[in-house]
Design a protein around this nucleic acid. Structure first.
Lengths: 208, 208
DNA sequence: GTGGTTACCGAACGATCGTTCACTACTGGC
DNA sequence: GCCAGTAGTGAACGATCGTTCGGTAACCAC
């Protein structure tokens, strides 16, 4: 409690707000109101609005690493871990545990045209994530779980496709079948990449 | 020229602006400045800001229909038309002919949490589009160009995935290979849906 | 050439934006 | 008991937000 307990509260509220109205949609006033502080009170913990937004983005990353990536790393390398990462990713996109969808996806659309430290950080984080996934694909390939001619970057591209389509369908269309469709798409991706689904303990060869 | 020529200019500028900063990022002031009018001047043509945003969205739809959908409808129904629609979609997402990417994708992320006529219209338009694609898949299936057990909605879901992943990779990562990857993903989708690529005149069975 | 309509300007409205400043409680160290 | 630092308030800053209002040129009708 000596170290800023309030700072955490601000970031919590900021994350919730960001997922609803987008990162750029956050306002000093609205954020202050949602943590029951004055606008000036925020400046006791942060230097500027950009500083706040960056901290919020960092907090989101921290949570995703904690809740999604770290547990997945306990799975055995290769297909098992890849599948765990996909599940965690999907789960995060569903409710991260925020009301308004994945912060990274919504902020990507806002930031992709606006240069600056915020965009730089998002790009860096997403590149890291894509790199992590790509290496796992390679591992699976080396272990013979995926066929030798699988292109890791193409594989990751299509993983992104499943997640993004899920996010789009679930949030805009409010399509309840979106999650099933995303899982099915990933399963198909695995199958045509040479993975024998019938040997998979989780799904036993059947869909979703 | 009696009917508002200026109105067109406003919508043109609005479209360009929307693709850069997002629909919600548009400001009465910035829009007025970019068409060399006063803020009050805009109110000679529109009732409110929301009215403007809606008109911009409608203008975007009109263009997409004109440039993308209508030409594609000249293709023979089935795979040919489906392929043309995908190409038009991809082309539009690339540069619609705006500097900042696809307006529908970027505004979807902003609007998915904010109820109102704007969101309603976007959902309606996107549902129409998904419906159009779905019917074309069905036609292709009936003509025997796709296998009988293809699920149109799943097929369209994965088309969305390719386009969204393209948009994400191209705009955020500035990945030059994104277009090729999206085309490849679609080709794969066709292939595993029972389409014999070797009979396709365009690609002759080879990739991209 | 007078009257009405359309297209726009310039100024102002209250609200909110991000930020700064002076000030005040409360805390622990000595 | 004083001092330094932390956490926060409340008021104000200039800028900009979306919107309204009064006025004014230009055009068309008759």
């Amino acid at each position: 409690m000596p170290a800023s307990d309030t700072r955490e509260r601000i970031l919590d509220a900021g994350l919730a707000l960001a997922s609803e109205v987008g990162l750029q949609g956050i306002t000093i006033g609205s954020l202050a109101r949602s943590v029951d502080l004055t606008k000036a009170g925020l400046y006791a913990h942060f230097d500027s609005k950009d500083d706040i937004l960056l901290a919020i983005l960092r907090a989101a990353v921290e949570r995703f690493v904690e809740d999604g990536i770290r547990p997945s790393l306990r799975e055995t390398p290769g297909i098992g871990r890849l599948r765990a990462l996909f599940d965690a990713w999907l789960e995060w996109s569903k409710a991260p545990p925020l009301p308004g969808g994945c912060v990274f996806i919504s902020s990507a659309a806002e930031l992709d045209d606006r240069p600056g430290p915020l965009r730089d950080y998002l790009v860096e984080v997403q590149a890291d994530w894509a790199g992590l996934l790509g290496r796992e694909v390679k591992t699976a390939r080396e272990r013979g779980e995926l066929s030798g001619d699988v292109d890791p970057r193409q594989f990751v591209f299509e993983m992104y496709g499943s997640i993004l389509a899920f996010h789009y369908h679930a949030r805009l269309f409010e399509d309840r079948t979106a999650e099933t469709r995303a899982r099915w798409a990933f399963q198909e991706l695995l199958a045509r990449s040479g993975h024998d689904a019938s040997t998979d303990p989780k799904t036993g060869g059947a869909g979703a």
